[in-house]
């Protein structure tokens, strides 16, 4: 949801731009980096591999 929120932040910034001056500070740039790294991290998890590890720990044997 972080990247969806980022796009909607862009849109509302453009809307506000017609009413007021905006100055982007460090929090905004770090939020962009946070959204990117979070979605990359979520996409690079190998779900099967991690569940296999859990299964090994629970049953103390290799998964079939």
């Amino acid at each position: 949801m972080a990247e969806v929120f980022l796009i909607s932040a862009f849109i509302s910034m453009v809307k506000v731009l017609s009413l007021a001056d905006l100055e982007l500070e460090i929090g905004f740039w770090s939020y962009i980096l946070f959204a990117i790294t979070l979605s990359v991290a979520i996409n690079s998890i190998d779900k099967l591999q991690s569940w296999r590890t859990v299964y090994k720990l629970v049953t103390n044997k290799a998964a079939v």
Partner: peptide, 10 residues
């Protein structure tokens, strides 16, 4: 959800 977020932010 973009539209809902935009309204909430604004």
């Amino acid at each position: 959800m973009i539209d809902v977020f935009v309204v909430a932010l604004l």
